[in-house]
Amino acid sequence: MASVSTYVPSLELVERIANGEISAIARMISRAEAGMPEAREALAEIYQRAGRAHVIGLTGVPGSGKSTMVSALAARLRATGSKVGIVAVDPSSPYSGGSILGDRIRMTDLSQDAGVYIRSMATRGNMGGMARATMDAVDILDVGGFETIIIETVGVGQDEVEIAKAADTTVVVSAPGLGDEIQAIKAGMLEIADVHVVSKCDRSDAHRTLTDLKQMLTLGVKGGKKSEWRVPVVGISSFDGTGFDELMKALEGHRAVALHSEMGRQRRVAIAGFRLTKTAENLLMERFARACAPLTLDFAQRLHRHEGDPYSLAGELVAASFGKE
């Protein structure tokens, strides 16, 4: 188990990734997740080469049938010849920081297909429903030859809208029978959708969810926002395959808008801006964490003794931390 002999430098992995070698792709994603400084140069190289794939963000409340739908959708995409990468993001346990990542189980139909890559990621305290390295993983898969990349996140509240700032096309999934007729509204996800999907349409109560959602959209909740694209509502059943042709058309249609329209161009700039800000935030947090570590105890004791208030001491701590770099 000599670690030195088996360690492959990240830069060496880049060509192997470009050749579509799965173990190299997988390892590079691990290094991106770990935030290894050694991997930064390679990730930079990868970013330069990336940008071809259609990135679909897919979100919905737990129990909406997202994973099963992703599985069926991936099978359709495969039938068109596209290689499909899936990044399934699940929340980490707030207590232990660990996680059980269960989405793969609902995608077992894809488990033998070499043209499908599934990667599970834990949010690890990252807000917004995405993991820190999700976008790195997308780039790596892009360079690895995956033409469509689906990011699946659990939508539970307002925070989950991050997905819309990362994907070319955002799909919001609702399901009948989960209590609230349209969970997307409650979860604040109505506005972010480029495509709405109502899953489980083999159920008798699905019709109502469909009509409610359509009505809600025509009522024009920010109706004028997307003039070049009219947000469709697609009813599907992963059980009997209903609606997937329509869904494929909707995705293809939106892809054209996303890639070739002015709106799409602006969106891509916004995505880049978001990526840049997030990355900068992370760098800043890392630097701050490193720099303030030796000072924190002293500041905490001063606060405890009421030698200052939280606001002024925090200001001092920030100033002192960055003074050191």
């Binding site: 980490s92 346990s93 207590y95 232990s96 920081g97 660990g98 996680s99 059980i100 990542l101 269960g102 793969r104 189980i105 599970s120 834990a122």
Partner: peptide, 10 residues
Amino acid sequence: RDAGMDVIYS
């Protein structure tokens, strides 16, 4: 998971 690991169950 409770020991802080990321677990994927097959």
